[in-house]
């Protein structure tokens, strides 16, 4: 079954079959990164644009490495060095880039829906690399890939997502993906960080970390996104750590073979203690490694499906 999509804008519209296709394809691409010559000619002659309106190290680098290992030409545009600072609109920027015939545009933007806007006006495939607090599909896919590698399958697993759910696109994409694949997902955080009616996405809400950790197979810790917050959601960082920070002591409530995940960047001593971040339970760096494989798979599948789109 091919991926019959021009764009990857979110996890919500994907079927279970499409998700599994991406995860299976990523397995094959993971091997490429272990070779002496880490390059295959699959996307030779394709042009990829990394269009980032928000800061990023991991995601931008990961897409760049994924593109380069597939022999695509990839260029990076960040808002601070582009015409955006001269007042150009997103639509005008997109139309100008499109005029140079790129094949894929990877966009990160602070506004939810910006990638969808681009997808509607561009011939190129658009990949959402994070739009506001909406979705970050490749992060959820690499998280699922990492869980499958460690646990075999996702169905039936108990997963806790802890931290700033309100501002987190990672949380939303992961909730969509994990519930589609049959995991039991619970979330926890200060009441100010729990979006209203989040239960409608099929998750259980806890306001205390200990209850959320009880018997979990997988624990995902999210960062406090201070850059998105113009008001205070909790009294102090120290208090946050005392009430919601993940420590080895608290982790005892989870299953013995629990894995700890974090999309990065880490704020050590705020949402997670250093001893947990560096413990054998942590698969945080595996997530980064798998991110390249999953993004290679997404780039491949979006490019390969092109022709059918045109003929049908």
């Amino acid at each position: 079954m091919p991926l019959k999509r021009k764009d990857l804008l979110g996890i919500e519209p994907l079927s279970v079959e499409e998700i599994n296709l991406i995860l299976d394809t990523a397995k094959a691409f993971k091997e490429v990164s272990t070779r002496d010559i880490k390059k295959v000619p699959t996307l030779r002659g394709k042009t990829l644009i990394n269009l980032f309106f928000e800061p990023s190290t991991r995601t931008r680098t990961s897409f760049e490495i994924a593109g380069k290992r597939l022999s695509a030409d990839i260029l990076n545009i960040s808002a601070s060095t582009s015409s955006v600072v001269k007042g150009e609109t997103l639509i005008d920027t997109a139309r100008n880039l499109e005029a140079m015939y790129p094949d894929i545009i990877i966009i990160r933007h602070s506004r939810a829906g910006a990638p969808h806007l681009l997808a509607n006006i561009c011939r190129a495939s658009v990949i959402n690399a994070g739009d506001g607090a909406h979705e970050h599909p490749t992060q959820a896919l690499l998280d699922a890939f990492t869980i499958k590698e460690n646990k075999g399958q996702i169905k039936g697993l108990k997963v806790a997502i802890i931290g700033d759910i309100l501002h987190s696109r990672v949380a939303r994409s992961n909730i969509h993906l994990l519930t589609k694949l049959g995991a039991e997902v619970s979330i926890a955080g200060p009441a100010t960080y729990i979006p209203v009616e989040i239960e409608k996405l099929g998750v259980k809400v806890y306001h205390h970390i200990d209850a959320a950790l009880e018997g979990r197979d997988v624990v995902m810790i999210l960062r406090i996104q201070r850059e998105r917050q113009d008001k205070s959601y909790f009294p102090s960082l120290r208090e946050y750590f005392n009430l919601f920070g993940l420590t080895l002591e608290r982790l005892k409530r989870a299953k013995k073979d629990v894995i700890i995940m974090h999309p990065g960047p880490l704020n050590r001593g705020v949402e997670i203690s250093s001893e947990v971040a560096d413990s054998p339970y942590s698969v945080i760096l595996e997530q980064v490694t798998n991110g390249v494989a999953v993004r290679m798979a997404v780039l491949y599948l979006l490019m390969g499906g092109k022709y059918e789109e045109v003929v049908s």
């Binding site: 299976d24 094959a28 691409f29 390969g304 059918e308």
Partner: peptide, 23 residues
């Protein structure tokens, strides 16, 4: 050997072939 990543007809024969592992 899986040669899918090295095919010269990636965008010429839709739908795209499934990539399997080289081992």
């Amino acid at each position: 050997l899986d040669i899918t990543m090295y095919r010269d007809d990636l965008t010429a024969v839709g739908p795209q072939p499934i990539v399997r592992q080289t081992n």
